[in-house]
């Protein structure tokens, strides 16, 4: 008899295709898991509307479940409630840092124009003396930063609320 915890355990082996150190559970994109008419329904919510990783995540989830002998599963895409970076787990934040990506910090209200960029600690040397190079980085969810102390360029996972 398969239980929800078994599914969760398997999902913890499915990684984000763009940030492979994070599992889909770390990322907080799995909303609910339940049995409906003999199918396990896994609710998946997108980070950004246009995030191209979502389709791949669906494929990877179903492949991993099949590999573990669970063939009666379906992925359901849900939009509500909308994903926020607050849902990235504490472990996920630590994994991001070790991977070289600064995790999201609280940012000023978006209605304030020309606000100072968020103060982000360097994921390599932990210095707070960093500068934003570009608000738009390698993917929609990241900004590009550089550390003034160790000079390391790094990605910052933007806060989305």
């Amino acid at each position: 008899m398969v239980r929800e915890v078994d599914i969760l355990k398997i999902l913890n082996e499915v990684n984000d295709p763009e940030i492979p150190v994070l599992t889909v559970l770390d990322l907080g994109v799995i909303q609910q898991i339940y049995l409906q008419e003999q199918y396990w329904i896994i609710e998946l919510t997108p980070t950004y509307s246009g995030c191209p990783a979502m389709q791949q995540i669906e494929v990877d989830i179903l492949a991993k479940l099949t590999e573990k002998g669970i063939t009666n599963a379906k992925v359901k895409h849900v939009l509500s409630p909308a994903w926020t970076t607050d849902w990235i787990s504490v472990e996920g934040r630590q994994k991001l840092r070790l991977y070289g990506i600064a995790p999201p910090v609280n940012e000023p209200n978006k209605s304030v124009l020309f606000s100072d960029p968020p103060k982000v600690a360097c994921p390599k040397c932990n210095s707070h003396d960093t500068k934003m190079v570009s608000l738009f980085g390698s993917t929609a969810c990241k900004a590009h930063y550089q550390c003034n102390t160790c000079k390391e360029p790094f990605d910052y996972f933007k806060c989305l609320k």
């Binding site: 950004y48 509307s49 939009l79 926020t84 124009l113 609320k161």
Partner: peptide, 25 residues
């Protein structure tokens, strides 16, 4: 579903408006 799409998109649109407003100024 329309409300859900709006709640999702509003966060992205705030970024867009901030970006375009700053450039206009």
């Amino acid at each position: 579903q329309l409300a859900a799409i709006a709640a999702k998109s509003v966060k992205e649109t705030r970024y867009h408006l901030k970006h375009s407003s700053e450039w206009v100024i």
